[in-house]
Design a protein around this nucleic acid. Sequence first.
DNA 1: TGAATAATTGACAGCGCTCCCAAATAACGA
DNA 2: TCGTTATTTGGGAGCGCTGTCAATTATTCA
Lengths: 338, 338
Amino acid sequence: MKQGLEDIAKLAGVSKSTVSRVVNNQPHVNEKTRQRVMDIIRETNFRPNKAARALVTQHTRVLSVVIPQPLSATFTDPYFPTLLQSVTLKANQHDYAIMLWIGDNAEEEDRFSDRILNNSFFDGVLIASAVDNDPLVHRLKNAGFPYVLIGPPQNGITHYVDVDNVIASREAVRHLIALKYRCIGTITGALNMGAAQHRLQGYKEAMKEAGFSHDPRLILEGDYNEAQSYDAMQHLLACGVDAVFCASDVMALGAIRAVTDAGLRVGVDVGIVGFDDMPFAATLKPPLTTVRQPINELGERATDMLIRLIEGQPIHKENLLLTAHLMVRQSCGAAVRV
Amino acid sequence: MKQGLEDIAKLAGVSKSTVSRVVNNQPHVNEKTRQRVMDIIRETNFRPNKAARALVTQHTRVLSVVIPQPLSATFTDPYFPTLLQSVTLKANQHDYAIMLWIGDNAEEEDRFSDRILNNSFFDGVLIASAVDNDPLVHRLKNAGFPYVLIGPPQNGITHYVDVDNVIASREAVRHLIALKYRCIGTITGALNMGAAQHRLQGYKEAMKEAGFSHDPRLILEGDYNEAQSYDAMQHLLACGVDAVFCASDVMALGAIRAVTDAGLRVGVDVGIVGFDDMPFAATLKPPLTTVRQPINELGERATDMLIRLIEGQPIHKENLLLTAHLMVRQSCGAAVRV
DNA sequence: TGAATAATTGACAGCGCTCCCAAATAACGA
DNA sequence: TCGTTATTTGGGAGCGCTGTCAATTATTCA
């Protein structure tokens, strides 16, 4: 029982044009006619054919969300689910549907971006945590196709939305300083990545403004790995550190273990602050003070920006850096100090 | 620089028909002609318009994945991310793209299914964990539109793929029995849900076949809540239970806490088995023995079934019950007993 | 060599919709 | 009253593709 505009028109005794006007809520239709047509549409459960519409309007009202790496790599991290949810919600509010593409390590990046580009049934692309020099990004850019990156910016690429890692880290370290810790170290992320660099920079800025002289022994590079962070923390402890800012919660885990193994108490003898606010952070003993990224806002703002880009509306800024917030819990000793 | 089949045809000195044949890899094209056309396609970076194709073929090669409840409800549970990933991968293998719909508690079910149905740009629908009497399911069924449910079956609805909860639970309890526990209780899920009922049934079957007489005091209904499970476990302990099968890992957490608080040792004095194999299960002390659902297989099989349905290929069975596997770790005492 | 057959190619009618433009009708004003 | 303008309708081209059918060209075999 397939039906088109034509059939509705016949039933309502009008032309396709009029039905089209009603369907698209356009003016220039007599109120009585509109009612009659709407009734028939309801009765017959008519749904306009998206393909036909897209063919003529050249718009699909579909957004692609691309997640280059497999989700499974980050099981315990609710980052992608949360992001996906906020993007979907926001898109739906604007009457856009979401098409999802998840990368597969077994596939080359070029093939992956080919597949996406081949399926051109979308008006814009949201790319979550693109790897550096992602071919997809460059191809979209060259094609002048609307896209927005969610996550760390890449060299020369505009239209991204990310968290301001410098500000967030500076806040975290300032908090430690306010708590009167006097020898604060940091375990950074892999420093070939922008986010890790920025988090380190935030640490440095906070230290500097507090008048602490730069001490390279307090800065240890990690790689988001628990065991490695454990070792780093032991070194830091040997240097007489009484607090540490870890560039990720997983690394904070390693630091905590090192503190405990050294017979010290987290949040009493040694303050620890993490980054990410992973689900386990709040359930640790003591609960971990950490930085929470505004993932929902990230998704919403990126989606908004993309839709504006698609619809040719002005965007206020090409790039957005959102503010993350410190979740103050007990691992920094906030309850017992001050 | 928009281009269509027509332009390629002109450049290659052939007709649209021939280009179409090449693009769709159809026979009846001279090898030299094919090469020539393919070269031009490559040079010009031509991509056939999906909307136009869909309009005539009446097929989109798009699958919708519907997740009725918000993802955020289950942050630490990698179920949906994993499922999404396996579905996407499998679909892409068959050259289908994925459209994603995530429910929003604030929206009525009818509105939600309206929105999905209105966007008819897909050939079939995958519904993950549909609620009972989901209007979407019924509307798809009535419309004769291809769909497959992933998760608990609903009354009268065919075409679903799920885990066989009875078998899985029976295995779990059999394992406890083999470990010579003699008084095995269970904390069930909310029994108004099919899965919880089936897990209970598996428990009962294992108990019966082992010759244990039915003891209702050993069966306590939970609701997937840690605190509530803690209380239940205290009752069970008072009944002299030496092992318990929990219908979820979260409830196992409560049970473990109760055991510990009672001064008993998990996996030594009291055996505990969970269900789900959540990420935290393996990191508990002792690690939790639990049932792992084959989430990837669930996604793959469902996707396969849906595609067969769409393409009119025969399906072997209308419904599929997959086997979950017991992850034997230390909380059941497997290492120290036997 | 020529008729019969096979392989290759092209013409063209839609698919269901939008949107421009012209036609019909209604409302208005002097 | 009739011309004039505003409002409401319909006609029809065309979006880019597929797929049928007929036309053309190449191949085969007696």
